[in-house]
């Protein structure tokens, strides 16, 4: 059980940042603030882990870089975190994954106006052009890649059910892209209910799907936590051989089963929580190299198959 660093790392960070602020600030040290939502579910847990992991590594590699990491459970707290970073830690750059776009747009713009380098991750701000660097996963491709797999592997007239996430724009983009991709294939979507990216909720919804529909050929669970809940319900109903499931995001347990060639889980679609690492690394590059790092960096959603699964497997990550 690696319950590692949490206390250690934050304490060390706080101490270092405190020292750095006083002693080293004049010494060409650059401070990068990282503000992300707290680990409330599997994906964010993975994202938090990758953020801490990357920061620890970069601090060891580049003594001239200092990092301030703050996690927030809600937008108001995140705004306060960012204001504190500018006011008390004198950051040079901000890497931010906005909890919600609207409430964070103003505060992040203020940081930009104060002359800081701004990297926005995953969720865009509501006003374009504020950020210097934008790093994100591809929600459209996330739905499309899954849809293309369904289209290629199911006959016309096949019946599928869909588990949706928490009602958000992001979820809509994924589902729309999925439906567009299977359009014209003759695949019938029997139902699409919200499983809220939650195992228990997905278990319940899947149980009800199974009561309602005598024949289901495949399930698009759109998230690996939901895939796990759905699999338990299918197993309970004794209908394991009837359908396969495609989850998403690349949870290590699921990737492992794809590596092992589980017929129930043929493929997966990535939406990597490690995108925060990409964002932090690129931002750090600005201060340690001459590489230009402004612009947009969209991380593709790739189809994970038994053949390539090994490269998506991170056994140490909590996700």
């Amino acid at each position: 059980m690696k319950r590692r660093q949490l206390f250690g790392a934050t304490a060390a960070l706080a101490v270092m940042a405190g020292l750095a602020g006083v002693a080293v600030a004049q010494d060409k040290t650059h401070v990068i603030g990282v503000s992300i939502p707290s680990a409330t579910h599997g994906f964010m847990g993975g994202l938090n882990w990758h953020a801490q992991d990357t920061i620890a590594r970069l601090e060891a590699t580049y003594p001239q870089l200092d990092f301030v990491l703050a996690t927030a459970g809600e937008p108001t707290k995140q705004v306060a975190d960012i204001e504190d970073m500018v006011a008390t830690r004198n950051i040079d750059a901000l890497v931010v994954l906005p909890f919600e776009s609207e409430p964070l747009t103003g505060p992040v713009k203020a940081v930009k106006d104060a002359g800081k380098f701004v990297t926005v991750v995953d969720r865009g701000l509501s006003v374009p052009g504020i950020e210097d660097l934008y790093v994100a996963g591809d929600n459209e491709a996330f739905g499309r890649v899954a849809g293309e797999y369904f289209k290629a592997n199911l006959p016309s007239g096949a019946k599928i059910v869909v588990l949706r996430g928490i009602p958000t724009t992001l979820d809509n983009e994924r589902v729309d892209a999925f439906e567009k991709a299977i359009d014209g294939s003759g695949i019938e979507v029997l139902d699409k209910q919200h499983g809220d990216w939650n195992r228990d909720k997905a278990f319940t919804v899947m149980q009800d799907y199974l009561s309602k529909y005598p024949k289901i050929d495949a399930v698009w669970a759109a998230d690996d936590d939901m895939a796990i809940g759905a699999m338990a319900a299918i197993e309970q109903a004794g209908r394991k051989d009837e359908m396969w499931i495609v989850g998403g995001a690349g949870m290590k347990e699921i990737i492992k089963r794809i590596m092992d060639g589980d017929p129930q889980l043929p493929v997966n679609v990535t939406y990597p929580p490690a995108q925060i690492s990409t964002a932090i690394e690129l931002t750090a590059l600005k201060y340690v190299s001459a590489a230009p790092v402004t612009g947009r960096f969209i991380i593709g959603s790739t189809l994970v198959t038994p053949e390539n699964a090994a490269q998506f497997y991170f056994p140490d990550s909590p996700f």
């Binding site: 690696k2 319950r3 590692r4 949490l6 707290s38 680990a39 409330t40 599997g42 964010m44 847990g45 993975g46 938090n48 882990w49 195992r199 936590d225 309970q236 347990e253 990550s317 909590p318 996700f319």
Partner: peptide
Amino acid sequence: VTWIADGGTLSLDFSMREFIGPIYY
């Protein structure tokens, strides 16, 4: 619980899960 799970999910070892599964199922 979030801290113990490192922000992720605590999972019971698979073989043990199979063993105690009948308590629910």
